Amino acid sequence: MSDHLILYTNPQSRGCIVRWMLEELGLSYRTEVLEYGEPMKTTEYLAINPMGKVPTLVHGERIITEASAICVYLAEVFPESELAPMNDDERASFYRWMFFAAGPMESAIVNKYIFGEEAGADKQLMLGYGSYQLALDTLSKVIKSGPYILGERFTAADVYIGAQLEWGLQFGTIEKRIEFQEYVECLSKREAFQRAHALDKALIEEVNEV
């Protein structure tokens, strides 16, 4: 099935995370670029992803959405990449931090910087992340323990969390803490990271020329 991977994406979306993951795997895949708006709301695409958004990965007859889920799926379906946890201890940390980043951390960022809301202390118990600062401090601890999320071994968790931090540092939604900056700088030296960025940069330039 590795010859039947299709990535539906936009170079200015979370699809960049999945492209990086695919480049780490070193597999061949086809890219289908969708512009925002009507191209993502066609009958054909909604049959694939009813949310009408990207990224979506099609693997043979399987459809996977949500960037974090796609990264986990690819790591597990292609174990030879060694991007998935290899024992129960790694598995515990892998799932813990992957879904912390996809859930509490992203919610904290969105609420603070997109909606401009920060819940008071009396309401923080109702939120999955408590407060933006608590979420950030929690992520700092695992980054400091590095060099990677699982310690000495790079995995799909680093792809997802690294991409989240890179984006946040670039656009100011993540505090420029030294541990975050050093972590992203380390990841940015990976060949797969650089290939993925080059591919998406070329697509952005292509769209801007039209």
Rank of each mutant, 00 (worst) to 15 (best):
A108D: 07
D3E: 12
N87K: 00
I161L: 14
A84S: 10
L22M: 14
G151V: 06
R62M: 09
I178C: 02
G116T: 02
K189F: 11
A192Q: 05
A121G: 06
G128R: 06
F193K: 09
D158F: 12
E185W: 06
M1E: 13
S81T: 08
V54T: 09
L22A: 12
I174D: 00
L27K: 05
T43F: 04
L34H: 10
A92G: 04
Y183K: 01
L7P: 07
H197C: 04
L5C: 11
E191L: 08
L25G: 00
N208T: 03
A108E: 08
F78M: 04
V54S: 11
I70Y: 02
Q164A: 00
I70A: 00
S81G: 08
K41R: 14
K53T: 10
G120Q: 13
Y95D: 10
F94K: 01
N87T: 02
L57V: 15
L150I: 06
P147E: 15
M86T: 08
R195A: 10
S81N: 04
S28R: 12
N208A: 15
S28T: 06
A92Y: 12
F171I: 15
E117D: 03
D122E: 15
E23Y: 11
T9Y: 10
L5A: 01
P50S: 03
L25H: 09
S188I: 07
K112E: 02
L57T: 07
P104W: 15
N87F: 08
